[in-house]
Design a binder for these strands. Structure first.
Length: 261
DNA sequence: CACACTGTTCGCTC
DNA sequence: CGAGCGAACAGTGT
């Protein structure tokens, strides 16, 4: 599920449920979800509180009253759930915190691609992992600079978290559909005007998704989100059909009549 | 049964 | 060193 708009929602959810409460227990069923030893999480979290959040793309940093910042990455199938009764623990709630008031915060992760890490500073993490600025915060000039010297398909480049943080497979397809650019078009062959169009639609698609709380079925009809999983759907802009190809190893939906190479 | 999947990371080549 | 590429990771859903 999570691209930038979903993680934006998870951030709001966490802020509205889990801040400023003493953590009394930390339970993790599968240590593969933890990038640091379990004992480090226990030491850092038990007795502390979450105090605030900062999100960069799909990376959610949760500040604590202790020394460490918790980094939550939801992978492909993650989401948070706040609940009261122990028996309501979600089936895939592999990491669960318990607060002093008895409520729990679960990190659901069906496919176990999600991760929790402990970091000292967000800036250091960002630098070390070459994580770009959040897509909503990147300027046109910064975006242009990040594209310079790249020589591969535009879709791969906008999905690169070191170029702009937050774009995933679905958003990328919609951005290029709205910008009328073929997903396999080489970045080096894009005109200045096309780059501006990509930047503008990147902001547009993400703001639309945030406004609609990432409920893609509620998107206006002209969005590619509405056509996914429906091969051969009608293109909104032409009398052509939507086709599915593979770009950078990911399923890619586009309209050949609308998006030319 | 076979295949697809909203993401990241690693190892390899150039 | 850094870009590009493909595989690997894990488990569920169809």
């Amino acid at each position: 599920m999570p691209e930038l708009p979903e993680v934006y929602g998870y951030q709001q959810y966490l802020e509205n449920t889990a801040l400023h409460q003493k953590i009394v227990a930390f339970d993790c069923r599968d240590a593969r979800l933890l990038k640091k030893p379990l004992a480090d999480f226990e030491t850092s979290l038990i007795g502390s509180e979450f105090t605030g959040t900062q999100r960069i793309g799909k990376y959610l940093f949760v500040k604590t009253s202790g020394k460490k910042i918790v980094l939550m990455h939801f992978g492909m199938t993650g989401k948070p759930t706040y609940y009261k009764e122990a028996e309501d623990r979600p089936k895939f709630g592999h990491i669960v915190l318990t607060f002093e008031n008895g409520f729990h915060f679960a990190f659901e992760n069906k496919r176990k691609f999600g991760r929790w890490d402990l970091v000292d500073t967000i800036e250091a993490y960002q630098k070390e992992h070459k994580l770009s600025k959040d897509t909503r915060d990147i300027s046109l000039e910064e975006f242009k600079a990040a594209l310079r010297n790249r020589k591969t398909a535009i879709k791969k480049v906008i999905m690169d978290q070191s170029v702009t943080a937050g774009v995933g497979n679905w958003i990328a397809d919609d951005v290029l559909y709205q910008a009328q650019i073929h997903p396999e078009k080489n970045v080096a062959d894009l005109s200045e005007e096309e780059i501006i169009r990509v930047y503008t639609k990147l902001q547009y698609v993400i703001e639309t998704a945030i406004d609609l709380e990432a409920h893609y079925e509620d998107f206006p009809e002209q969005f590619m989100m509405r056509k996914r999983r429906e091969i051969g759907a009608d293109c909104h802009y032409t009398n052509g059909k939507i086709e599915k190809i593979v770009v950078g190893g990911r399923s890619t939906y586009y309209s050949p009549k609308w998006q030319h190479l």
